[in-house]
Design a protein around this nucleic acid. Structure first.
Lengths: 114, 114
DNA sequence: TTGATATTTCCAAATATATCGAATAATGGA
DNA sequence: TCCATTATTCGATATATTTGGAAATATCAA
């Protein structure tokens, strides 16, 4: 994952309504939720929600699929894992650092870029 | 952790120079780095770096301490853990979801708010 | 085809963020 | 005290983001 993509993803999440949407999608799991339901749940007009969903999709944080008249959005969990990996890359220079493991909360897989 | 704090933290990281600084601090570990060294490493004037460091500190992502004439910044790892926990809260409704564990990358501790 | 539903695109206005030089503050050494 | 070093605050300017109504697009059912 490269810096520009990471910044897009973080920027996409750094907004009240989009963060709320993303959390709803995380909780909804792979089945996802339609755009209209998200707009209603968050309480913003459709045109605004469309704008926010486009940001999340452009950042690669969510996927979209059409189902009849609805467009269903779902969280892409791999993107979040990659985000974490980028930010924690080579944490503490690779040296086991704090005694209580409060940093470098490393499972083997978070050490490598995904 | 509450929504406003999470948005501040994500917004703080969603910027080229601040993301670079944060990654440097993650790699530097608990010892941290002085403001001047960060400005030089990232290649921005001191006044700009000061602005960015204030954003990161205000978001709770980094700590600062004075050491003689320098102010040393260090990553606060607990903040990142809390951030993750907030975003992944109740992932997939709490039900083990994908067979290959590609979502809800749950260690026991990430399930609870920190 | 006509009408209803679901969503997106377009646009302009309001708001927020980033930039960096100059001025200000804090520290430590001669 | 006086000077050099390190860092922050201030202020003006440039850039980017968020908002929501109206119009456009896509789907489906009668």
């Amino acid at each position: 994952m490269e810096a520009a993509a990471v910044i897009r993803a973080l920027g996409a999440l750094a907004q009240e309504h989009r963060l709320a949407v993303y959390r709803l999608l995380v909780q909804a799991g792979p089945e996802g939720l339609p755009a209209g339901a998200l707009a209603q749940a968050v309480g913003v007009p459709g045109s605004s929600m469309s704008f926010h969903l486009a940001q999340l999709a452009n950042a690669g944080l969510v996927t979209q699929r059409r189902q009849s008249r609805s467009i269903i959005y779902a969280a892409d969990f791999a993107a979040m894992t990659a985000l974490m990996a980028y930010m924690m890359e080579n944490c503490c220079g690779g040296v086991p650092c704090l005694p209580d493991d409060s940093c470098c909360l490393s499972t083997p897989e978070t050490k490598d870029a995904v």
